[in-house]
Amino acid sequence: MTTFKLIINGKTLKGEITIEAVDAAEKEKIFKQYANDNGIDGEWTYDDATKTFTVTE
């Protein structure tokens, strides 16, 4: 398992979430669903070196 981080830079929601997953593709799906469930629609980036997804509205 690898630890992945999501950084949220939303208009109404900001924060960080850290979760373990098998791979980045699995985690991306979970993070995007979390963002969608919380009304966050923005630009996504991924840094493989730090295993960090960022979504910015």
Rank of each mutant, 00 (worst) to 15 (best):
L13N: 08
E28C: 15
T52L: 02
E16S: 09
A49L: 11
G10C: 15
E43Q: 09
Y46W: 05
F31W: 07
M1Q: 06
T3A: 06
K27T: 15
N36W: 14
K51L: 06
E28F: 15
E16A: 07
F53Y: 07
I40S: 02
W44A: 01
T56N: 06
K29D: 08
V22D: 09
D41M: 12
A25D: 10
T45L: 05
L6Q: 00
E16T: 11
E57F: 15
N9E: 04
Q33K: 13
K14E: 09
G15Y: 15
L6S: 00
F53D: 01
D23M: 07
D47C: 07
T18K: 06
F53C: 13
A25C: 10
F31L: 08
K27N: 12
Y46S: 01
K51T: 03
E28K: 04
G42S: 02
T50N: 05
F4C: 14
A25G: 09
G15C: 15
I30L: 10
G15T: 14
K29C: 14
E26F: 09
E43K: 09
D47I: 03
D37R: 08
L13V: 12
M1L: 11
M1P: 07
L6P: 01
W44Y: 03
G39N: 08
D37W: 10
Y46A: 01
A21M: 14
E28W: 15
F4T: 02
G15F: 15
T18G: 03
K5M: 07
D48A: 09
A35S: 03
G15D: 09
N36L: 15
F31R: 01
Y34M: 08
D37S: 08
T12D: 07
K11A: 09
T12N: 10
I40M: 04
T56F: 10
K51E: 03
G10R: 03
D23Y: 11
K5S: 06
D37V: 08
V55Q: 04
V55R: 07
K5G: 01
T12A: 08
A24G: 13
N38V: 11
L13R: 04
D41R: 10
G39M: 05
N9H: 05
T54W: 10
D47G: 00
E57L: 15
F53Q: 00
N36V: 12
K14Y: 14
E43H: 10
E57V: 14
G15M: 15
D47E: 03
I17E: 01
T12F: 13
N9V: 13
F53E: 01
V22N: 10
D48I: 08
I8G: 00
E28G: 07
G10H: 04
D41Q: 12
I40T: 03
F53K: 00
F53W: 08
I30D: 03
N38Q: 10
D47Q: 01
G39Q: 06
T18S: 06
L6V: 13
T3L: 12
T12H: 12
I40Q: 01
K51H: 11
I19K: 01
L13M: 12
D48L: 05
E57A: 11
K51R: 12
I8N: 00
T50L: 04
E26M: 09
V22L: 10
A24S: 12
T50I: 04
F4G: 03
L13A: 06
A24N: 14
K11C: 15
A24W: 13
E57N: 10
D23G: 05
D23R: 05
G15E: 12
T18H: 09
V22S: 11
A49S: 08
I30Y: 10
E26Q: 07
N9T: 07
T52G: 02
D41F: 15
T2E: 06
I30H: 05
I40H: 02
G42H: 03
N38T: 06
N9Q: 08
L6M: 04
K32D: 03
Y46N: 00
K32N: 06
N38P: 03
D48W: 07
K32G: 04
T3I: 12
T45Q: 05
T56M: 05
T56G: 04
D47N: 06
D23E: 06
A21H: 08
G39Y: 06
L6K: 00
W44K: 00
G39S: 05
V22F: 12
F4Y: 13
I8K: 00
D41K: 13
D23A: 06
K11E: 07
K11W: 11
A24K: 09
A21G: 15
I8R: 00
I7C: 12
D48S: 06
T3W: 12
D47S: 03
G39K: 04
Y34Q: 00
G15W: 15
K14A: 11
E16F: 13
T52N: 02
A24P: 11
V22K: 10
M1D: 04
K11L: 13
D41W: 14
Q33L: 06
F4R: 02
G15L: 15
T12K: 07
V22E: 09
T52V: 03
K27Y: 15
T54I: 07
E28L: 14
